[in-house]
Amino acid sequence: MSQRVLSPTAPRKTAGVAERTRPSPRRRAVDAAEKAWRPLALLVVCFGAWWVIAAAGWVESYLLPTPGATLDVIVDKPGYLWDHGWVTTYETLLGFVIAVGVGILSAVVMVYSSTVEKTLYPILLFAQVVPKIAIAPLFVVWLGFGIGPKVLIAVLIAFFPVVISMVTGLKAVDPEMLQLSATMGAKPWQTFLKIRFPASLPHLFSGLKVAVTLAVTGAVVGEFVGANEGLGYVILQANGNLDTPMLFAGLLVMSLIGVVLFVLVEIAEKLLLPWHASRRDTGATTTL
């Protein structure tokens, strides 16, 4: 009776399991191009429509500058926009980090205590529906014209998506997994670290991508109320001087900051949760 000897280096295949191979750099480049051409095409169409409307004189130039005039401002004053853009970025990141930390902690407490959830959730909902622009002047009165009011508004705006997504993720864990861990004698903190928290990360990252873009809005809203630096200050100054090219330049830089931060969060999600990101490689909600 002869036996087939398998080479130790020969790949082993399991029946019924499809072998996944890493795509080649060329394949990944093609996939990236296929995902990018549609939004790029839409941007080209929007800028083309903007240029046609402005160049044709359908709208006065002091109301709608041409894309060329806006880009000229960006090229002529890169240092000015960089300095103010960095201030807004710093306020955004600081507010976002605080919102993430406080939001995750609040979500954990709410999930593990129904009393806290019933008490805190209505307050969070009420705080979310209050327009932040309406209470921003109070923060300036209380905290002054420094960085405090801007960061606080960014925290308040970004906090709600974080805590809601985290609560949803922690509650979405398979009950059978929790029962299994309890049967095996796992302590609550072990169950949280090994089961609940990892299972909640996909939901959490969905909330983080929303929160990081809202944090940019919160920082700019704070700068609208009282500031002498930041993109909100640039936009207000340009509006007061009827300098619409500078106003549009500030808006473009602000949008660019939000897009970059969104992409960074998405990259972090792909690095930390490759098993989750692979399930939606064909989805429309990913930019990478």
Rank of each mutant, 00 (worst) to 15 (best):
Y90Q: 15
V155S: 03
E91H: 14
V100N: 02
A134I: 02
R196A: 04
A219T: 04
A29W: 11
P65D: 01
M184T: 11
L6H: 09
A99W: 09
A49W: 06
T70D: 09
L93G: 12
Q128T: 03
P175W: 07
T92C: 04
V116S: 09
K209F: 04
I147C: 05
G218E: 01
V100Y: 04
V221R: 05
G16D: 04
V73L: 06
C46K: 01
L94Q: 11
P65C: 09
W37K: 00
F205L: 11
P67W: 10
F262T: 06
M246K: 05
G57L: 09
I267W: 10
G218A: 02
V253K: 06
L256Q: 01
K13Y: 14
E60Q: 15
R196Y: 00
S7D: 15
G95C: 02
V44I: 07
V111I: 04
A107N: 06
A249P: 15
F145L: 13
R22A: 14
L125M: 14
V97A: 15
R12I: 15
E91R: 15
S114L: 12
R4K: 12
A10G: 09
M246S: 06
M1G: 13
I123C: 03
W189S: 11
I98C: 14
G101V: 14
I135N: 00
V210W: 00
G283W: 02
V87P: 10
A33M: 10
D243M: 01
A277H: 09
L288N: 12
L201T: 08
K132Q: 07
S206I: 06
H84F: 12
T282F: 12
Y112C: 00
T287K: 01
P78Y: 04
